[in-house]
Nucleic acid binder design. Structure first.
Lengths: 191, 191
DNA sequence: TCGATCGGCTAACGACTGCTAGCCATCGGA
DNA sequence: TCCGATGGCTAGCAGTCGTTAGCCGATCGA
């Protein structure tokens, strides 16, 4: 059944190229060259260029949602719930910066119906964060002018990592995660 | 000398299309259609498609830097300085969401040497924000684990507007600006 | 009135794109 | 040993793109 390793290598190369040059700016020949084969040979492993993007974006959103689900399971305290959700959010963006960057900037290149699906997952993710803030406000633990704006701010905090975070940077993943979580809690007035 | 209005209309149409479909995903025919002419006719008004992007991105960064300069002029108090810088930052992103979005996501489509120029301006803008945080820390008015991370967080807060802010939204520009400024001050522990 | 300029247009070039067709070497299992 | 599957390859199709060339009607100052 072959090694199957090439399929993974192709997806990894596509991710890196989509992040660096954009979906439209990346050719199948580019992706092929990155794994040592010609463009047309790619079609022995993947159905189409669009398929590469679809799979990349849906698995990214699924991973993010799953991580959040796990982080929130079995915890009732609003402050602790937000802390865990932000931890998962930031950690995911640190570990998958390229996926996050492509996910945010290439939504337009995603064809229907997948575009709608991914947008739906993203809306669900955001709604979940807003609810976390509202829970904290209702419990008298947070103090914010607008739960919507606060949740957007927290989401943006983590998504920003996609731009500036580097694994080789001077700050470790844990340090960044801790500080961003601290920022998020200060932001909602739970410091 | 003609009206000159067409040149402006072309730039406005290009901005909207670049934001919606991306630079590579936008054709000269698209831009022409948006202003009621054919693709090739555009060359009576602009030098090239790349020129459209170059001008868009440099004027955006210049506007952002100039606004920051004005905001900081003649104020010494670190808290007030950060407050004004964040106000300008957020207000700019609210008023020029499309420019900000294109500026952030189409850097890759910008050819050298303009890419280097714009990146330099952006680095200067970021450095200025970091210095503001460091000033506040040095004066004992802010309390942050890392000035670098705090300044990134503040920058991301405003840049996020590019994604979710809408003029027709329920929150007015002033409300959003005020709340984001509040968030930024909480974030650096100056609440 | 006349001639230049302005700003549209179509035709077309040359390069490039995603993808298909079809060929062939390699190699593991029967 | 041989046969089929695997996974490379080149050639090429059918389009699209940015851009140039060259044409022509309208407008306007002299």
């Amino acid at each position: 059944m072959g090694t199957g390793a090439t399929g993974t290598a192709i997806r990894a190369a596509a991710l890196e190229l989509f992040a660096a040059r954009g979906y439209e700016g990346t050719t199948m020949a580019d992706i092929g060259a990155a794994v040592g084969i010609r463009g047309p040979s790619l079609y022995k492993h993947v159905a189409s260029k669009q398929d590469l993007l679809v799979e990349l974006m849906t698995t990214t959103m699924d991973g993010l949602l799953e991580l959040q689900r796990v982080a929130l399971a079995g915890t009732a305290d609003p402050v602790e719930r937000l802390r865990r959700a932000v931890d998962a959010h930031v950690r995911f963006h640190a570990r998958h910066r390229l996926e996050a960057f492509v996910g945010a900037s290439e939504m337009r290149s995603l064809a229907e119906p997948h575009r709608g699906t991914v947008l739906g997952k993203r809306a669900e993710y955001e709604r979940s964060f807003r609810r976390l803030v509202e829970e904290g406000v209702a419990a008298g633990r947070f103090r914010v002018p607008s739960a919507r704006l606060a949740s957007y701010a927290i989401l943006d905090l983590g998504m920003g990592l996609a731009t500036w975070y580097r694994e080789e940077g001077e700050l470790s993943e844990n340090e960044v995660v801790w500080q961003q979580t601290e920022f998020a809690l200060r932001l909602v007035g739970a410091g």
